Computed example of a mutant assay.
Amino acid sequence: MELANATSSIRPRDTNVGSGAVSEVFSALEGLVVQANATRQNLDQLAPFEIADARTHAYDVHIRAAALIETGVDFRYVINVRDKCEPLSSGLISEILQAADEFCSIEDLNAAGAAVRTAADAGIHSVSGSVHPARLVAIGLAKLRWNVGFSFIADVKMLGDDLKWGVDQVESASLEDLQDQVAKLAERHARREAVLFRANASGGDAWIDATAAKILEVSDLSLNEALALIRDDDDHHISLSSSDVGGAFAGLYWDNGVLKAWINDGVQDWSFQDSSLSLNVEGIPQTVIGSLPGKRLGQLVEHRFIPAQSVITKVAQTGDWIDLELVTAQTPIAVGDNDRLAY
């Protein structure tokens, strides 16, 4: 089994805008920010507009201007770059300027900022025990293009799925929901920190599971080449071609510090995603299916990509199909980043 033209066949996952288009949109936004700064008037309370730092700009981009008065509250204008119904045009400049003017007209910005910070701080501090905990790095009030009022914003610096530090953005119309979302990010960060420390203790700074390692083995891609193609939360499709697999697709992605794989093959009636193997089991007795939890996959089926030693932990059946939840072996990997513990 071989990967056909592995490097050239890798493409972004199916979304409204591909990664190349996102870069193009991002460049256009940078130009709009320059124009907005050149034409702004009577906005002395705000620093110049800029694109807010974030882990990824693949979905929403925040146009940011820090308040120069003692509020600590950012102005944000949120643009959905995946939405084809939200074209980038010169009209955005006037919308950004109008929203900034509305922001500066808020009567008690200090009180609004204090409320946002209190909610976000409560979310951050709801989780204890981290050596390097997640941090609140900015708060703000945001105008979404199609919304009338402002929503609340919190920027959290934390470990991502690839265990790199970055900024995750939370946006909500409710302070209670904002606090809950920030708390979930803090919990996620703490779990990822524990994964990172286990990898460090094993001589690495991340993990790869056995199925992803098998995909790399047959692809002729090195680990470094694969990592160069994968970005946090960006799933890449790799086209497989052989007489055994037919028109299968496979992908590699980060999941809480572990490089994982998914595989989809409609020809041979199986698919694998999120550690779950779906199989057509027509003809297999129910007594066999019911006895699978706790057994190794190799006791049921031999699979080219999924190790026989994988342990079946749960079985769900729908008609002739079963979903097997699997635990697969993981190996520490060194991805060459020295700043993962940087705070």
Rank of each mutant, 00 (worst) to 15 (best):
I322A: 05
M1C: 10
A261R: 01
L300M: 08
G31C: 02
N147Y: 03
G166R: 06
L252C: 08
S239R: 15
D155I: 01
V156W: 01
A201G: 09
N338C: 04
A250M: 04
A119D: 01
S128K: 14
A58W: 05
R64I: 05
Y343Q: 13
I93C: 13
G113S: 07
R40L: 01
V78R: 13
R55Y: 03
H237K: 09
V327I: 09
K84M: 14
A329L: 07
I238E: 02
A36D: 00
R11E: 07
A112L: 11
A115T: 04
E2W: 03
S271L: 07
K184Q: 15
L341T: 11
I96H: 05
N110H: 14
R231Y: 12
S8D: 11
T118H: 15
N224S: 15
L175Q: 08
A66Y: 06
S222Q: 06
S278Y: 08
Q181K: 14
L92H: 13
E193V: 05
D121I: 08
I69D: 15
E171N: 14
G166I: 06
R304S: 12
D83Q: 08
Y253V: 00
F103R: 09
L3R: 01
A52E: 06
L68E: 11
F197I: 14
I51S: 01
G266W: 11
Q273P: 02
F103T: 10
G298F: 14
N224M: 14
N16W: 09
S126F: 07
S271C: 10
F249T: 15
I284S: 04
N200I: 13
D60Q: 14
S130Y: 10
V78S: 07
S242P: 02
A120M: 05
S219Y: 04
L227D: 08
I263E: 00
G203I: 06
S89G: 14
V311E: 08
A142F: 00
A6S: 10
G204K: 05
S174Q: 07
T287D: 15
A99F: 06
V22C: 04
D53C: 03
Q286E: 12
V33R: 00
L196A: 03
N80P: 06
D168M: 13
A206K: 01
G123A: 10
S271F: 09
N42I: 00
H57W: 11
V17N: 00
S174N: 13
R13S: 11
G123F: 02
Q286R: 10
V116M: 04
G140K: 04
D235G: 02
V245H: 04
